[in-house]
């Protein structure tokens, strides 16, 4: 089996994990999770340099920060299937006494989570701090972060965007999940984001438009390109054009599935579109 096929299988399995997790507890955020599946699968399995022992001191490896913490289902599934914690633990998502909280936390000591997120707009600042710690430690690794596009309505992001460029934080790749949707509707209707590319560039970032954010090969190519642009004095931004709910036809392209779980019938439909590949948890 080719490496590409393996990653495709993993992507399909992660999709199954996502819809099964939110279905079981009748809560959680499938839309953004499904839209970012290719990105996180590619990042953790093709792009990032990760220590084999999964120690969490943050030294000597690439690090990832999820700012839009509500897409925890995809994050948990990708972390578990990468080896950070047992895959069967996905079955505890959002349950009492679980390490898999509704939004990711460090509080329960789940390996792979480096900061709590969920209250939006904070992750880029944390990623910048981690990037600057890497520079102080002469640790030549990259910090990755992921943010919702609607999340950019939070002002702290623009403090961080200004700071990262002004301080040449060029070991940072921040990706925006550019799906054009948020809880109350399309971002263009709720609060238009304007020309994001021009905005990031005006602040001094190197911006890469990644048009096929749900095409695994395109994502890998784009992430490699972004990586090649680090170390050149500018922070790097990827505008990752995705479809919310990607891979489950009735969830695609609408804000309706931002934070809603499928019922039994919808689950069956979703799973039929994403056949089991690596074994359900």
């Amino acid at each position: 089996m080719s490496d590409t096929q393996k990653l495709q299988d993993l992507t399909t399995q992660v999709r199954r994990d996502i819809v099964r997790m939110v279905h079981k507890v009748n809560s959680g955020h499938p839309g953004g999770s499904l839209g970012c599946t290719e990105f996180l699968v590619a990042l953790y399995n093709e792009i990032m340099e990760i220590k084999d022992d999964f120690t969490m001191d943050g030294i000597g490896e690439d690090l990832f920060f999820l700012s839009n913490g509500h897409i925890s289902p995809v994050f948990y599934s990708v972390l578990a299937r990468r080896g950070y914690f047992p895959v069967k633990e996905l079955d505890t998502f959002r349950l009492l006494n679980s390490r898999l909280q509704g939004h990711p936390t460090t509080h329960e000591g789940l390996p792979g989570i480096r900061v709590a997120s969920g209250s939006l707009g904070q992750g880029m600042s944390v990623a910048i701090g981690a990037a600057q710690a890497k520079k102080l430690n002469n640790d030549n690794h990259i910090i990755y972060s992921l943010h919702g596009d609607g999340e950019l309505q939070e002002g702290q992001n623009w403090e961080a965007i200004m700071y990262a460029a002004g301080n040449n934080v060029d070991n940072l790749i921040s990706t925006i999940d550019y799906n054009g949707q948020q809880i109350d509707g399309a971002t263009k209707d709720v609060l238009p984001l304007g020309d994001l590319k021009a905005k990031f560039e005006a602040f001094g970032w190197d911006v890469l438009d990644l048009h096929h954010g749900n095409d695994l090969d395109a994502v890998i190519k784009g992430l490699k390109e972004a990586k090649s642009r680090t170390g050149k004095g500018k922070p790097v931004c990827i505008l990752l054009h995705t479809v919310m709910g990607n891979g489950v036809d009735f969830m695609m392209g609408t804000h309706a599935w931002h934070g809603k779980a499928p019922n039994d019938e919808q689950l069956e439909k979703a799973l039929a579109q994403n056949p089991e590949t690596l074994g359900d948890y």
């Binding site: 001191d57 943050g58 030294i59 690090l63 920060f65 480096r114 900061v115 707009g121 904070q122 992750g123 880029m124 600042s125 944390v126 990623a127 910048i128 701090g129 981690a130 990037a131 600057q132 710690a133 890497k134 102080l136 430690n137 640790d139 002002g155 702290q156 403090e159 961080a160 700071y163």
Partner: peptide
């Protein structure tokens, strides 16, 4: 706000 987040990030790495 950015300062508090950056401070949190700087702890990662000691």
């Amino acid at each position: 706000a950015n300062m508090m987040g950056i401070a949190a990030g700087l702890t990662i790495g000691g």
